[in-house]
Design a protein around this nucleic acid. Structure first.
Lengths: 244, 244
DNA sequence: AAGCGTAATTTTGAATTCATAATTTAGTCA
DNA sequence: TGACTAAATTATGAATTCAAAATTACGCTT
């Protein structure tokens, strides 16, 4: 086995939407298992590793050029985040997005996003508000172009910017872990035109309240936004189930 | 090395306050690393492994009769929960409870507890309310006896019962992870008489609102309770720092 | 040919081994 | 003595090995 093969490969960071540039050095400094956690997260949310399927330990080892030890360490961490489920003596399985899970996670995410909105209003700088406004405007353009991919990316960035402005890493970490779990449901491709329009409306309100620094209102609006998204995901889930 | 030594030992569950009985079988079915996660959590919150100290990998392996592989898997999970910090090539260290961490975690915990209160009011049964009331009354007795240990145990049970009544495992898991982090600050021993009295008052309100099933009010009260606890922990922290 | 049972194979969980990095100890010189 | 250096020791990260469990393949019976 080629030693050091991974460390090489790990540097060609394949456009992780969560991290910006300038982290390349840091990434290569991450321990193997941490790097594997990020990599496998990407495989899962991208659908490369589909929900309900088994995590192919051996082939992932080969793909990343590492031994089973760090890979299995990564799987334990992913399991504690709820992205995979470990079955004793039967390996790791990518968890399914079930209705009951959606009904559990979104309310929690709603409460956390609400908090992030409140804190952001207290701590965000005027410059950061301008940056979010800019993202918002660009997102509207993507909406008008019906560019779902771009829309989704910017949408994520907006939420992330608000989270950053909340100045609370614990909150950021918790939110992202739960968001990742929900991202396995790649329902966006099938989001209805009405839901999309409504989501855009909600975002108009969000940017408005952020600019007004109305923390309380922004909190409730973000929670409502999450709740609406929950309904949308649930509808998508039922449609999925019906069509299978 | 004695194989299977651990599996034996793991069954003499040393009174984990989080788990009730009848889990003994389940515990012995847990994988080694999961069991180790629980065990090391206990060592950390009990202060057996003190904040800021190095996690003694070798001696823990001997203590539990396991090899380094499952132990290190457990450490990765504990690190992702924030109980230990992994320093590359320098091992695992029990994280310190810092002021900035307290200021981060408690607001998040407050938001989650608030949600748990709201959901509990929707879902709790009358029988469960009676059980919480019973715990509450017993806690008051411990307070009058100035039995801090007993008080704390029952206090935890009350919060846990509310969480269970919220019927949301994701919420429960998130809350517990954050609670564990704060439990490293064993500030209770030094809690002021005034703070204790105030906490009891807050709990009177909590049980009252739960019995009235006033979710909104219970939510805000629980959040306020957390905020007060944050202040108390911070004061304790500063006192600690001053005396060292 | 379908179902059953057993042997071969693969996969898993965990111990062990091995290379490298960090730390400690011992020795040197000012 | 006290700082600096180098060797020895120890600890860490990750690959490998090994036993046990699960899965698959195969042949047998009906």
């Amino acid at each position: 086995m080629l030693r050091g093969f991974l460390k090489w490969h790990l540097n060609d960071n394949p456009g992780n939407p969560m991290t910006e540039n300038a982290t390349v050095y840091e990434i290569s400094r991450k321990s193997l298992h941490q790097e594997l956690v990020s990599r496998i997260q990407l495989l899962i949310i991208s659908g490369d590793l589909a929900p309900g399927t088994k995590v192919p330990e051996k082939s992932l080892c080969e793909r990343f050029g590492v031994s089973r030890t760090p890979l299995r360490e990564a799987l334990k961490v992913l399991a504690s985040d709820g992205l995979v489920r470990l079955e004793p003596n039967r390996g790791a399985w990518v968890t399914l997005v079930t209705a009951s899970e959606v009904e559990e996670v979104f309310p929690v995410l709603g409460a956390l996003e609400a908090l992030s909105g409140e804190l952001a209003c207290q701590n965000i700088t005027d410059e950061e508000i301008r940056a979010v406004r800019d993202l918002h405007d660009r997102m509207i353009v993507s909406y008008e172009d019906r560019n779902l991919d771009e829309y989704f990316k910017i949408n994520q960035k907006i939420h992330r910017h608000i989270l950053v402005a909340a100045r609370n890493d614990t909150l950021t970490t918790s939110c992202q872990a739960l968001s990742l779990r929900m991202q396995r449901a790649r329902y966006l491709a099938n989001m209805s035109e009405e839901r999309w329009a409504a989501a855009v409306q909600e975002h108009e309100k969000i940017i408005h309240l952020l600019e007004a620094r109305d923390g309380a209102q922004l909190g409730t609006t973000l929670a409502a936004h999450m709740s609406a998204k929950q309904d949308s995901v649930l509808r998508w889930l039922y449609a999925q189930k019906a069509s299978n």
